[in-house]
């Protein structure tokens, strides 16, 4: 049984970290015992050694991927939220634009990636476009859901206060949508990262996606894993930043959590 101390935030952090440590320990020990060749599965120590051999280079490649991810994610948030507001506020857009977006969402976005190279060339634009496209749907779907999740009594209250559309949107609808919007943004952030890597797979001379593809060509498995490690770490940091922001923006939610 988990005791009281391990229920706190610090306790949960310790549990999480130790589960990582145990995972890597098993990996390390198992690959040594069973003598797995590094080209199939390098040990964590070998991967770390590869990272340590040229940390600046990995950071630079990670930086490219990060910029693409943030640009795609940022565009997805801005355009996605604006469109969601229009979809919720303008009735006709629900059965036209929103229905269209939902239908488009079923298209595997990755399949479209090569098209962007034809349209936008091999610079950073096609990567940002792919990253945006993959992240965009998660934002729109969750933002629309959030903007619609306003309790009807709250809209009644707004009506008795003779609230204009903009007032209702700003003071009631938007704050109501925030929890859902943050859930969407967390999913979208990981998806934006997927989008940049896919973009770098398709056509690139830098970024972690390019590193993985190039290293795969020379069977340099430790390098593939090193790039994956950097991607995973970056993804975790981005997720953590969003969670931090969420707690900042919605203190009332945090206060709810404290009570229970």
């Amino acid at each position: 049984m988990v005791n009281g101390k391990l229920n706190g935030r610090v306790g949960r952090g310790i549990l999480t970290v130790s589960s990582f440590v145990i995972f890597f320990l098993i990996w390390q020990v198992a690959s040594q015992i069973f003598g797995i060749r590094p080209v199939i599965l390098p040990t964590p120590v070998a991967i770390l050694r590869e990272l340590a051999s040229s940390p600046g280079w990995y950071l630079l490649q990670g930086w490219y991927t990060l910029l693409t991810t943030l640009a795609g994610f940022g565009l997805a948030v801005v355009i996605g939220v604006l469109l969601s507001i229009l979809i919720v506020e303008v009735k006709i857009l629900d059965s036209t634009l929103y229905a269209f977006i939902l239908a488009l969402n079923t298209v595997p976005k990755v399949a479209v990636a090569p098209l962007f190279v034809i349209w936008l060339g091999t610079g950073s634009q096609p990567k940002i476009a792919i990253s945006f496209l993959i992240a965009f749907f998660a934002i729109v779907i969750d933002a629309v859901l959030g903007l619609r999740s306003v309790p009807p009594e709250m809209l009644d209250l707004a009506a008795t206060l003779r609230g204009g559309r903009w007032d209702v949107l700003r003071r009631i609808r938007f704050p109501c949508a925030l929890p859902s919007l943050f859930a969407g943004m967390k999913v979208a952030m990981s998806l934006a990262l997927v989008g940049s890597v896919v973009g770098e797979f398709v056509a690139s001379e830098h970024g972690l996606g390019y590193v993985i593809l190039a290293a795969q060509g020379t069977f340099d498995t430790p390098r593939v894993f090193a790039a994956i490690f950097v991607l995973a770490a970056g993804g975790m940091v981005l997720f953590w930043i969003l969670s931090l922001l969420e707690r900042r923006v919605m203190p009332w939610h945090a206060s709810l959590q404290v009570r229970h």
Binding site: E153, D156, L157, T160, R171, I172, M250, W252, L256
Partner: peptide
Amino acid sequence: DRPPSDMGMVFQRDVLLDW
């Protein structure tokens, strides 16, 4: 034909804004 301006309303649920 619309909510009167000089009126206040209290609902069954308090409908306070949690944020």
